[in-house]
Design a protein around this nucleic acid. Structure first.
Length: 319
DNA sequence: ACCTGTCAAGTCTGG
DNA sequence: CCAGACTTGACAGGT
């Protein structure tokens, strides 16, 4: 069983490099000239594209094979009042180059549309906005020429009770174009929808599940994780990439939903031992405040706790 | 150089 | 029914 480690969006080791630079609508509105607005949009986006490339190069150099691209790559891309922002026409080449780098190094990259994307909202305008945002993520992968790209979402709202909320989710899921729905993967959350509930939905609509171990700790519905693991793994049958896990450690211990700076290695090893009998490869996304530094810290701590474990490279465990 | 407030979004809770 | 909490990194403005 091969386990690859990844991290989210920011490379702490690269100072002054960020692919999430912003142009807020407030600042955009303050600019009077149309030309000035467009120039600023292009300047910020270009900077994000260049820095994303730097981050991916850095990942390749450090044998990091798994990475989440920021959802803030293109500022105001789906803003309802910014209708003439044809970002795709300006940045096709940049994204193609990014995609080529990803493929050259056999990396896996994902996205995670922000939490205000609620596919099952009771508000029609929210559902429409969400669809627009999912379309943006689909375009990113398209322009990268990266058909394997997936985007992680949650079920979303619990309005009307969980059953109704799940029904709304499934109904709206089926209104999506196949190009988009086939790229979605669904994650259990830390307050509302448990891993077992997500597994039920994923089985029903035949979508891979993302198992967030920390969320399960906070919101397990009294189901032991051992009962989730086999079903979760099965949702990835026939997929190009291995099953995907999210890990983080509670900041103040216990069931604290806040993410700590680093990962408690022992808890992670315990989890891996539970997966081991199934012999499936795994890709593990580290969601810690210290990002790539937390990844290096986890590698160091695993090596110290389990000195006999085999490593395929700096970030890939053979267990 | 550092600290604080603002921005942006949708949901949910408390009053 | 409405205000505030929640979340998160970037950025602006003040000291």
């Amino acid at each position: 069983m091969r386990v690859r480690l990844g991290y989210v969006a920011i490379a702490m080791k690269l100072p002054n490099v960020t692919s999430s630079s912003q142009l807020t609508y407030t600042r955009y509105k303050k600019m009077v000239l149309e030309e000035e607005r467009l120039n600023e949009l292009k300047r910020v986006t270009r900077s994000n594209m260049e820095d994303l490339y730097k981050i991916l190069l850095y990942n390749a150099k450090n044998n990091i094979h798994f990475y989440r691209i920021t959802s803030k790559l293109v500022p105001l891309a789906t803003h309802p009042e910014v209708t003439n922002w044809e970002y795709r026409t300006y940045f096709k080449q940049d994204l193609k180059r990014i995609g080529e780098l990803v493929k050259k190094h056999g990396m896996r990259v994902d996205t995670h549309p922000d939490h205000f994307n609620v596919l099952n909202s009771i508000r029609k305008d929210v559902v429409e906005k969400t669809k627009k945002e999912l379309l943006l993520h689909y375009y990113l992968f398209e322009d990268m020429k990266y058909p394997e790209g997936k985007m992680v979402i949650h079920i979303g709202s619990g309005q009307g009770g969980k059953r109704e909320a799940i029904e709304r989710f499934i109904k709206n899921f089926h209104t999506l174009h196949h190009e988009i729905s086939s790229r979605l993967i669904i994650e259990n959350d830390d307050k509302l929808f448990t891993a077992k509930e997500i597994l039920g939905v994923c089985k029903e609509i035949k979508v891979p599940m993302v198992l967030d171990v920390h969320h399960h700790l906070c919101n397990s519905g009294d189901i032991p994780i051992e009962e989730i693991i086999p079903g979760f793994l099965e949702t990835w049958n026939g997929q190009y990439f291995p099953p995907k896990i999210h890990i983080s450690s509670p900041k103040e211990g216990g069931k604290d939903r806040k993410h700590a700076d680093y990962i408690v290695a022992n808890d992670f090893i315990t989890f891996l031992e539970k997966c081991k009998p199934y012999g499936r490869n795994l890709d593990v996304m580290i969601e810690a405040k210290q990002k790539d530094l937390a990844l290096y810290g986890l590698v160091r701590d695993i090596k110290s706790l389990r000195p006999n474990l085999k490593w395929i490279d700096e970030t890939t465990i053979e267990i």
